[in-house]
């Protein structure tokens, strides 16, 4: 089964995302900030990471940079999932190595469509 790490400080968002991802046959793990996400990746690399931008401890951007430096066996697909929907944010995310970008609020169709684009659904 495909694995997805959902990184978001909102419990509600994590729950919604988990629910959708499970209907798309993903095994889901959760992290509530960048630091937890990094620890989770060191333990086991998921296929996809759904990544919030603003989080209290280590932002999505800082996590992404840290992940790039980290000694991990393979690179997961990274899909930003954030309320930051300005052009400047999107460009910065792509430059930092994000594969796709979901602007919140999202629904099942949005998420499924973006996962298909990165070859994961």
């Amino acid at each position: 089964m495909k694995t997805c790490l959902v990184v978001d400080d909102s419990k509600v968002i994590r729950k919604v995302a988990r629910h959708i991802l499970e209907t798309l046959d993903f095994t889901v793990t959760e992290a509530c900030d960048g630091r937890e996400a990094l620890a989770s990746c060191m333990a086991s690399i998921p296929d996809v990471i759904l990544l919030d931008w603003n989080m209290p401890v280590m932002s999505g951007m800082d996590f992404l940079r840290a992940l790039r430096e980290a000694d991990v066996p393979r690179r997961p697909k990274v899909v930003f999932c954030t309320t930051e929907n300005g052009m400047a944010y999107i460009r910065a995310a792509i430059e930092a190595g994000a594969d796709e970008y979901v602007m919140k609020p999202f629904d099942r169709d949005t998420l499924e469509s973006k996962l298909q684009i990165v070859g994961m659904a």
């Binding site: 792509i94 629904d107 949005t110």
Partner: peptide, 11 residues
């Protein structure tokens, strides 16, 4: 925002 995100790659 919903329509633009369906099927369209971010780039």
């Amino acid at each position: 925002q919903f329509e633009i995100q369906r099927g369209l790659p971010v780039r």
